[in-house]
Design a protein around this nucleic acid. Structure first.
Lengths: 120, 120
DNA sequence: TAAATAGTCAACCAATTGGTTGATAAAGAT
DNA sequence: ATCTTTATCAACCAATTGGTTGACTATTTA
């Protein structure tokens, strides 16, 4: 992957974790309440082991945390991680949108001037 | 990947596109202005072909668009796609945060009541 | 103590990813 | 017409991903 720093590595793992429909459905489920591996695996066709792997990907991506309750290992959403991702995306999205607005405004000005100089 | 619908497939490609530091740096670069393949490849050690592949991943993920200018193929950021990603993340992040706030509020109430009933 | 439940570990497999080199296409410059 | 520049295509390779099965640990229950 040719990483540049820890921050990059963390973003890699987090975005990769979201790049799968099963893992996104798990995130959606956990946004409502915490759940165990068996509960999370129930809606899917695949084996519990496969879901366990998906959960590990989410955990290593920092998107969820886990606790212990006897033999259960409940999963909890880590909203702070999601916030970091939107912050990263928005930091560039907003720069680009501001640039587009300036361009629109410039084109609008040119159009106005053209109309003034060529009234018909 | 076991896709469920088109929307899922689009999110897969978009999040996967962001799960790489090279592609995130390209996004960051394009947020400032459009650029050609050669311009985008310049800061990296890898071959131009490799960067070209990264650009295709971004394009298939809907994160960038391309135009034609003679033999150049300039790349432009597609801010609408970034907005969709933050919308997806936020839809679940905000649900979870609201739940946590209700929990905090409940615990606060219980704590208040305990203090009232057991005023030390 | 024995049996059931919750979950992980290990080995394996097919498909995909991220990189390389070499050839090629298409447009511009001499 | 030839040469240079911009960019892509094709074939290949090592590493990773997403899934399987089977064995295992650890906790709870009978």
């Amino acid at each position: 992957m040719q990483e540049f720093d820890e921050r990059d590595a963390a973003l890699d793992k987090a975005f990769l974790a979201l790049a799968d429909p099963v893992r996104r459905r798990i995130i959606a489920r956990l946004s409502r309440s915490s759940a165990t591996v068996n509960e999370l695996a129930e809606p899917f066709q695949m084996t519990k082991q496969a879901v366990s792997k998906h959960i590990q990907v989410l955990e290593h991506g920092g998107l969820i945390t886990r606790s212990r309750d006897g033999q259960r290992r409940p999963c909890h959403l880590a909203p702070g991680a999601l916030e970091e991702l939107t912050a990263w995306i928005d930091s560039y999205r907003l720069v680009a949108e501001a640039r587009f607005r300036r361009l629109d405004s410039l084109l609008g000005t040119m159009n106005n001037n053209a109309q003034k100089e060529e009234p018909s």
